[in-house]
Design a protein around this nucleic acid. Structure first.
Length: 286
DNA sequence: AGTGTGTCCTGTGTGC
DNA sequence: TGCACACAGGACACAC
């Protein structure tokens, strides 16, 4: 579930307690998530400061004062919960988290302007964490070959067109490919294709000219809108459950099989592509 | 090289 | 009520 907008929302939630703060204690409650945690994971973090917390695609990256980089991926069920331990009463993002200690896998205790306990919870354990050496980010297996940030300078209608050239795979599969563009997942690919009026079954290379221009615009737009929605949900976290990772969002086609298309009123279809559900309107996506 | 499929993992929902 | 099973899906390994 966490795609670029959700990960960006999580980043913005963690930033105030992580940036400028030092890892005072790191607890790993199991040796692995999706992959084994790196050797000396806790030791690589403890005593070091987070200089900045960035995002690349669906990854969070904490740049450490040691020069190393903490890489975090939420998989599909990963969440962070923040408790501001320095306050007598919970505030900020602190919260009545729904208690699920069974899946609390990693705990960061941070000391900065305030002290906080950040807990990583991940029932399905599809998430993972890794440490990349100084100057080893771009060449790490996670980022080598990754496509441009959709909301960054490297992505444009022209760049999209070039990435799709020659591809015989369906446009749906091409957009899920992180080498084409970073950060899109099943939900936002479905939504962007719907908004652009492009059939998910169309061969990627056939999405050219006006179609790819429109698709480019809708990818950007749907991500921006979702980030904005995440931002507003962040402001409500103090009064809700405090878990960073998900927010309510209204989708046009995703998970709306059989419901009416908001454009033409025909029922939304679901097909399976590459083992994944694709939701779309067969009437208005061509 | 590009494309497609299976795997990981476990909570949730559905049908018998 | 209880059980079996499909499903969710990001990244990756592997086959063709």
């Amino acid at each position: 579930m966490p795609e670029l907008p959700e990960v960006e929302t999580v980043r913005r939630g963690l930033q105030p307690v992580m940036e400028g703060a030092v890892f005072t204690r790191v607890e790993t409650r199991r040796p692995d998530l999706r992959f084994p945690l790196p050797e000396n994971f806790a030791g690589s973090l403890q005593g070091h400061k987070v200089e900045s917390l960035d995002r690349r695609g669906k990854y969070l990256i904490a740049h450490l004062s040691s020069g190393e980089n903490l890489i975090m991926h939420l998989g599909m069920s990963g969440r962070f919960t923040i408790e501001e331990t320095g306050k007598s009463r919970p505030g900020g993002f602190a919260l009545a988290q729904e208690c699920d200690p069974k899946h609390d896998h990693v705990v960061f205790e941070m000391a900065g302007r305030t002290t906080a306990r950040i807990t990583y919870n991940d029932p399905r354990r599809f998430g993972f964490m890794d440490i990349a050496p100084p100057d080893g980010l771009e060449t790490s297996r996670h980022f080598a070959g990754m496509g441009p940030e959709p909301l960054g300078n490297g992505f444009s209608a022209q760049a999209l067109k070039e990435a799709l050239t020659g591809k015989t795979a369906p446009i749906k599969a091409a957009l899920l490919d992180q080498r084409v563009v970073a950060g899109l997942g099943n939900i936002y690919v479905c939504e962007a294709l719907y908004r652009a009026g492009v059939s998910p079954r169309r061969k990627a290379a056939s999405v050219a000219g006006k179609r790819s221009d429109r698709l480019y615009g809708e990818i950007i737009a749907v991500l921006r809108e979702a980030i904005e929605a995440g931002g507003s949900s962040l402001r409500d976290f103090a009064s809700t459950d405090g878990a960073l990772g998900y927010f309510q969002h209204r989708f046009d086609v995703y998970d709306r099989e059989g419901e009416n298309c908001r454009r033409c009123d025909k029922p939304v279809s679901r097909i399976v592509q590459g083992g994944r559900s694709t939701f779309f309107c067969a009437a208005c996506q061509r």
